[in-house]
């Protein structure tokens, strides 16, 4: 077998492998500019952030991260009022990390965006993987 043909076969096998992986695992998930991974928060930043829970109030009361503040976009809540109540924690912070519940819900990104619009001061990020990553890390309990 010539070297050109070998390269072609290797290339085809690699592409096929990638396609199979895509089918089994789904498309690759990429970190958006406004997202941060839990490993970065706990490692590089030493956990020195204000946590914001963007889920519904009942979920935050059930198993919100200790010390977190609730900033929900739920229609039953007044976002401005919640920001005002959370201001003593938010204003002095260097970084704020927002988490939400459902995979792909993007509420955390929306809340982070809204907080940036307030221009209060801290850098605002959405937690990649949401509350699931906090549960997997053992930081909060699923059934609390």
């Amino acid at each position: 077998m010539g070297s050109g043909l070998q390269a072609l076969v290797i290339g085809l096998v690699a592409v096929l492998g990638a396609l199979v992986l895509w089918k089994v695992e789904g498309p690759p998930q990429r970190l958006a500019d406004d997202e941060v991974e839990l490993a970065t928060v706990l490692g590089e930043w030493g956990g020195d952030v204000v946590w914001v829970d963007a889920r519904k109030r009942v979920e935050w009361e059930k198993n919100g991260l200790p010390g977190s503040v609730l900033l929900s976009t739920d229609a039953a809540e007044n976002f401005d009022t919640m920001v005002a109540e959370a201001l003593p924690k938010l204003a002095p912070a260097e970084r704020v990390v927002v988490y939400c519940a459902t995979a792909g819900c993007d509420t955390s990104r929306e809340v982070a965006k809204r907080l940036r619009e307030y221009q209060i001061g801290p850098q605002c990020y959405a937690l990649f993987g949401g509350v699931r990553s906090l549960i997997e890390a053992g930081l909060i309990s699923e059934s609390k």
């Binding site: 401005d80 009022t81 920001v83 005002a84 201001l87 204003a91 002095p92 307030y118 001061g121």
Partner: peptide, 11 residues
Amino acid sequence: QQAFMVVRRAV
């Protein structure tokens, strides 16, 4: 409507 005032230490 609400507006906020903050006196904060530089990061």
